[in-house]
Design a binder for these strands. Structure first.
Length: 634
RNA sequence: GGUCCCGUAGCUCAGCUGGAUAGAGCAACUGCCUUCUAAGCAGUAGGUCUUUGGUUCGAAUCCAAACGGGAUCACCA
């Protein structure tokens, strides 16, 4: 309707205003709730053009519009705004339209280009944590929204399965795992430990031993004890120590960190990890076996976690496969002059013209860095999926710079799709106690958290006792849906770009603006419709009266397709979450204010049931788009 | 230090492509279950939209600066 009015005004601008009108001067919005009206036109711009008062312009326009559009029932000019009130039949028609569509809000599959969405991208040295949860729920929801909005979507992740971090776990496991009576070291099988947790335990173990070794080294150095063949280290240490003199505290701490790094590089443990990485790269069979085994444990653990989260992927990429990619591209880019080589043979790109720095793309020894790999992987993906138009990378905002550079490089290399690559950059998740730090053990484990929210759901659901007649399996299923629904909604409702505070108590809350509140509304609607089912009648709605509460609900329902498109275009499930909450609030308000089953007027009753049906169906879809189940009882 | 992001009620967040008296939830207080699921609904109270300038009919919204918080600036990933 807004569009129709806007088009009309623009088309008639010459006769009304004596000149043509820019589209953005026509500002239409929903009328404020306290005032009578449905659609509001802002009059100030027109008053300016006509050198007249908003009042008189409004009256004129009101006449013209209501003559043109029979849907307009009445209008009023208030404070420079033209408030149009629509006929009841207009809203009824809208409701009928929504109700008659089986796929309301869903665009035709494949009507928009194919997009790849990457999310999760875990390291295989430790379990998933709260930060991953935000990443994964966000990326998963965006995938569903894009698909609903008409795109074909390929969901993917890059598994960071190689590198020094996993070697640390491997070294620690070989050195420190106790051996049981059968002569075996600890495995998920013989300990009952979840695979990723077990590997994570040894990663921590490595860190612990490393720290104590470093401490010893540092105190030796402080006492002037250096190993015989390490004059160079001694020299560096003394140089750094002297540099601390005359510096402020912050600078001294920075230097201390450098000294610590020096000590770490000299530790035997670190050397072992590095040796293991070299062996791995040389495909030493024993190292490879160990690596495959431990990664296998981690994948089993991840599979369990992903399954509980209710997420899935279409295509996996492993860094061990992709880390050599991109070198050829860099060499090609070197020939075409996109990159340049420094004296030590390292390859760089100069981005100073773009306001950025020079960035390394290939080490002096010819090995790849992260950037090299990402260049290669992106190109490979477009080769794997020839109809791909772009990639969405769901990655934390600490990598903003990296992606800015990556997309720039791809563009400079001449890939036209580079402009369709998007870094879905989300903010960090903070705890009330501050940042999550693995070193300080403040990391919130993904599995533990899911367990906690489900426990709370069990407790609260039992207290309410709405579930008589459900068997145990259905109940367990429902507890999962409620607990996870709450957690997902909690993490998704905040604008992805913003950093957010994770409050453990709030995240398991069931009242207010929460997932379970939305689910509960859905369950009530299902129950209502079930009771109404035996006595449904087909009726026409002409001449029916509409209450404000009813109009509000219909207005919200009308919004849905546009919200889906907007959420897709801005990669923001939060928009959808906010919309859904508004829809549900308006429905609950309506639900509490009117009778439905006991309504005597059949037309009114059927119309209200139709509204409940439509809300239920939109709500179910909206929840689906956020990865949340819509239970029919709870 | 350079670059980027953020600052709205006690707390967590909406609103930001400029529009009417800035909204929710939580926490506090008051009501509403013999009637469709009270995980609900209605209400009270709570604001210098960090500050100062600018742009204009109009600024939480746009611009600039200051203050405060965060991220990033590796031959790490």
């Amino acid at each position: 309707m807004n569009q129709k009015i806007s088009d009309f005004i623009r088309a008639r601008a010459n006769s009304i205003f004596g000149e043509s009108i820019n589209e953005n001067l026509i500002q239409l919005s929903p009328t404020k709730k306290e005032l009578k009206g449905d659609i509001t036109l802002v009059l100030f711009p027109f008053a300016k053009i006509l050198k007249s008062t908003p009042q008189s312009v409004g009256l004129q326009l009101g006449e013209i519009l209501s003559a043109e559009f029979p849907e307009i029932d009445s209008f009023a000019v208030v404070n420079g705004f033209l408030n149009l009130t629509m006929h009841n039949s207009y809203w009824i028609d809208q409701l009928n339209g929504i109700s008659s569509l089986s796929q309301y809000g869903r665009a035709n599959k494949g009507s928009k280009p194919t997009i790849m969405v990457e999310y999760s991208s875990p390291n295989t040295n430790k379990p998933l944590h709260l930060g991953h949860l935000r990443n994964i729920f966000l990326g998963h929801s965006v995938s569903r929204i894009l698909e609903f909005a008409g795109h074909r979507v390929v969901k993917t992740q890059v598994v960071n399965d190689r590198g020094i971090h996993i070697c640390k776990s491997m070294v620690a496991w070989e050195k420190y795992s106790p051996i049981n009576s059968l002569g075996e070291r600890e495995t998920p099988k013989n300990t009952g430990f979840k695979g990723d947790k077990l590997v994570g335990k040894y990663y921590v173990e490595f860190d612990r031993h490393l720290n104590s070794e470093v401490k010893t080294i540092l105190s030796n150095w402080d006492n002037g004890q250096f190993e015989m063949d390490h004059q160079e280290i001694k020299h560096k240490f003394l140089e750094l120590s002297h540099a601390k003199v005359d510096k402020d505290e912050k600078a001294r701490l920075a230097i201390d960190d450098k000294i610590k790094d020096l000590a770490i590089s000299q530790s035997s443990l670190m050397r072992e990890a590095k040796e293991m990485l070299i062996k791995w790269e040389a495909r030493d069979p024993q190292t490879y076996l160990l690596w495959t085994t431990m990664n296998g444990w981690v994948y089993e653990g991840f599979d369990f976690t992903y399954k509980r989260m209710g997420v899935e992927f279409d295509q996996l990429y492993y860094e061990s496969d992709t880390f050599l990619l991109g070198k050829d591209q860099v060499l090609k880019g070197l020939e075409s002059g996109v990159f340049f080589k420094k004296e030590d043979d390292s390859v760089w790109i100069d981005l100073t013209d773009e306001g950025l720095d020079e960035k390394l793309v290939l080490r002096s020894d010819g090995t790849a860095v992260y950037m090299t790999q990402d260049i290669g992987t992106a190109i490979e993906r477009f080769e794997d999926y020839p109809d791909l138009s772009g990639i969405v990378y769901t990655v934390g905002n600490e990598q903003d710079y990296h992606f800015k550079v990556l997309f720039l490089i791809l563009d400079k290399l001449g890939f036209s799709w580079a402009k369709n690559c998007y870094h879905l950059s989300y903010g960090m998740v903070d705890l009330p106690s501050g940042k999550m730090k693995s070193r300080e053990g403040t990391v919130v484990d993904a599995d533990d958290l899911m367990e906690e929210v489900v426990d709370k759901a069990i407790k609260m659901t039992k207290e309410r006792g709405h579930l008589d007649g459900l068997d145990e399996k259905e109940k367990v299923n429902l507890y999962e849906q409620i607990g996870l629904g709450g957690l997902k909604y909690y993490l998704i409702k905040v604008d992805p770009k913003k950093r957010m505070l994770f409050n453990p108590e709030e995240s398991i809350e069931l009242n207010g603006n929460t997932g379970p509140f939305l689910q509960y509304t859905h369950a009530r609607i299902c129950s209502l419709l079930k009771k109404a089912e035996p006595n449904r009648q087909k009726v026409q709605f002409e001449g029916i009266d509409l209450l404000e509460e009813e109009k509000e609900v219909i207005k919200n329902l009308i919004q849905f397709p546009a919200i889906v498109q907007e959420a897709a275009a801005s990669y923001s499930p939060a928009l959808l979450a906010n919309y859904t909450y508004e829809l549900v609030k308006s429905f609950n308000h309506f639900y509490q204010a009117v009778k439905i089953l006991s309504e005597e007027n059949v037309k009114t009753k059927e119309m209200r049931l139709m509204m409940a049906e439509s809300v239920g169906s939109v709500l179910k879809d909206a929840l689906y788009l956020m990865g949340i189940h819509a239970p029919s009882r709870m």
